[in-house]
Simulated assay, not measured.
Amino acid sequence: MRQIVLDTETTGINPKLGNRVIEIGCVELVNRKLTGNNFHRYLNPDRDSEEGALAVHGLTTEFLADKPRFREIADELREYIRGAEVIIHNAPFDLGFLNHEFRMLNLPAFDEHIGGVIDTLVQAKELRPGKRNSLDALCDFYGISNAHRKLHGALLDAELLADVYLAMTRGQNSLGMDIEVEEVTSGVDLAQVALAEILVVRAAADEVAAHEDLLNGLDKAVKGTCVWRTPA
């Protein structure tokens, strides 16, 4: 499965007021593995950033003056994200801007080119109701270093969000096995047949040690005792 973790920086908070996308950062995951096939562009918005936005991302009008316009990278972006499931933190914000940029070019909306959206802010609120669920807060919770994040940057934030997403969804892969059972006409109990084929393999000493290291890391991340140490 191909997924794209995406973040943008903008000149302000509302595209309907003329604000534009000035940076796009995308990180590719294939089967939950980082591939290194990332997409990153700075963009000239032909306008200044609002004061509040500039304080967040630090991308000045002077820095962006020689960068391409959105229309110059739109086809490249469309090809890169085509059909992928896109992972965004607070998806309505980024999608609102990207859809607006595409429509200004008389193109189908951004979200018509992709294979679905995962909003990690929604996921985090479900997992941590009542808690702060900003990207910084989630990095702290999952033990992901963001010490180098002085200002917001689309590619850096996408890389951090990829780590957060993988940590947040760890263990959600299916643990079941698809077992094909040939049709049986002899009256044999199929449940007993399936049960008979289950093998129990004890963990080796090094595997036990690795598991303990993982639990210690989870304890550190939650600053206490993780749920996996709690007796059932």
Rank of each mutant, 00 (worst) to 15 (best):
A232H: 08
V222G: 00
R41V: 15
N106H: 12
A65R: 15
R128D: 01
A162W: 07
P231V: 06
I13L: 15
P231Y: 11
P15M: 01
L190H: 03
P45K: 05
L156R: 11
E182M: 12
D66S: 11
L107Y: 15
A109H: 09
F141A: 13
W228L: 14
Q172N: 13
K220W: 01
A203D: 08
T61H: 15
E197D: 10
V200F: 15
F39Q: 04
M104K: 13
E207W: 07
I13M: 12
T8H: 05
F141Y: 14
T169V: 08
L199I: 11
G143K: 00
D157R: 08
L156A: 13
E212H: 03
F110V: 14
I87M: 04
F63Q: 13
L161G: 04
D206V: 03
G130W: 10
E159K: 10
A84C: 14
S186E: 08
D48Y: 06
I179C: 13
V21L: 01
V227H: 05
G18I: 07
A147S: 12
T61F: 04
Q123W: 10
V181C: 09
N146F: 11
Q3H: 12
I87N: 04
R229D: 08
A191N: 12
F93I: 02
N38T: 00
K16M: 13
M104F: 05
I4E: 10
V222D: 10
G130L: 14
E207L: 03
E51H: 05
E76K: 10
I81A: 03
T11C: 01
F39W: 10
R2I: 15
V56F: 08
T60K: 03
A84T: 13
E50R: 06
E23M: 03
D213E: 09
P231Q: 03
R149F: 06
N14H: 08
V56C: 00
D157Y: 05
A210F: 01
R229I: 10
W228M: 14
K67R: 11
E28K: 12
C226L: 07
L214S: 02
N99I: 12
